[in-house]
Measured scan of single mutants.
Amino acid sequence: TVKFKYKGEEKQVDISKIKKVWRVGKMISFTYDEGGGKTGRGAVSEKDAPKELLQ
């Protein structure tokens, strides 16, 4: 599970739902399947990112 803040809201998403991951400076950005055909997005700092996300 990845915990992150998006627009001031605390969120979390299961690693299995993450589609795409990329690095922006010291942040790790990602998109994930929100269900219902929607794609969500989020970002975590490199130090807070789970190891599975960095692979």
Results as ranks from 00 to 15, higher is better:
F4R: 01
V21L: 07
G8K: 04
Y32R: 00
V2L: 13
I18G: 00
I18N: 00
I18E: 00
E34G: 07
T31V: 09
D33G: 03
F30P: 00
G25P: 02
Y32M: 02
K7F: 09
K47V: 13
T39C: 10
R41N: 07
L54R: 09
K51Q: 13
R23G: 03
V44S: 02
F4I: 04
G8N: 07
A49C: 12
G37S: 06
I28T: 01
K38H: 09
G8W: 03
L53I: 06
D14Y: 09
R41C: 13
K47M: 12
S29M: 15
Y32K: 00
A49M: 05
G8E: 04
F30G: 00
K7A: 08
S16N: 12
G37A: 04
E46C: 10
G25N: 07
K19I: 14
Y32N: 00
R23L: 06
S29R: 15
Q55T: 12
T39E: 11
K26S: 13
E10M: 12
K47S: 10
K5Q: 10
K17H: 11
K38V: 12
Q12S: 14
S16P: 05
G8F: 04
K38E: 07
K11P: 01
T31C: 09
E9P: 02
L53R: 01
V21Q: 03
E52P: 07
K20D: 08
K20G: 06
K26Y: 12
V13Q: 01
R23M: 07
S45F: 14
G8Q: 04
E10W: 15
F30C: 00
E46Q: 10
E9D: 08
T31E: 09
K47I: 11
I18D: 00
G35P: 09
K11A: 04
V44Q: 01
D48Y: 13
S16Q: 10
S16R: 10
D14H: 14
A43K: 13
G42F: 04
S16V: 10
Q12R: 09
V13Y: 02
E46G: 08
Y32F: 14
E46Y: 14
L54F: 07
K19Y: 14
M27Q: 06
G35M: 06
D48L: 11
L54W: 08
I15H: 03
Y6L: 06
T1F: 15
A49W: 09
T31N: 04
K20W: 09
T39K: 06
K38T: 09
I18S: 00
Q12F: 12
E46M: 13
I18C: 02
G35R: 04
K26R: 12
D33E: 09
E52F: 13
Y32A: 00
K20M: 11
M27I: 13
Y6N: 05
V21P: 01
Y6W: 14
E52S: 11
Y32V: 02
D14N: 10
K7I: 03
K19V: 12
W22L: 04
R23H: 07
Y32H: 02
Q12A: 11
E34F: 08
I18W: 01
A43T: 15
Q12N: 08
K38R: 13
K26C: 11
E10I: 12
D33V: 07
V13P: 00
K7D: 07
L53Q: 01
G40V: 06
T1S: 11
P50Q: 03
Y6G: 03
S16H: 09
Q55G: 08
K19Q: 10
K19H: 09
I18R: 00
S29P: 02
I15L: 13
K47Q: 13
T1A: 10
D14C: 09
D33F: 05
G36L: 08
Q12M: 12
P50T: 05
G36H: 12
G36Y: 08
K7V: 03
K20R: 12
P50Y: 02
K26V: 11
K17L: 13
E10S: 10
E9I: 15
Q55R: 13
K5D: 05
V44R: 02
D14Q: 12
K11V: 09
E34R: 10
T31I: 14
P50L: 04
T39W: 11
Y6K: 06
D14S: 13
V21E: 00
K3I: 13
I28P: 00
E9V: 14
K7W: 08
K38Y: 08
L53K: 01
S45V: 09
L53A: 01
V44N: 01
G8T: 04
T39F: 13
Q55I: 14
T1Y: 15
V13M: 04
G40D: 03
R41G: 03
D48G: 07
F30V: 01
S29F: 15
F30Q: 00
G36V: 07
D48C: 10
D48T: 09
S16A: 13
Y32L: 01
V21Y: 06
G8H: 05
V13E: 01
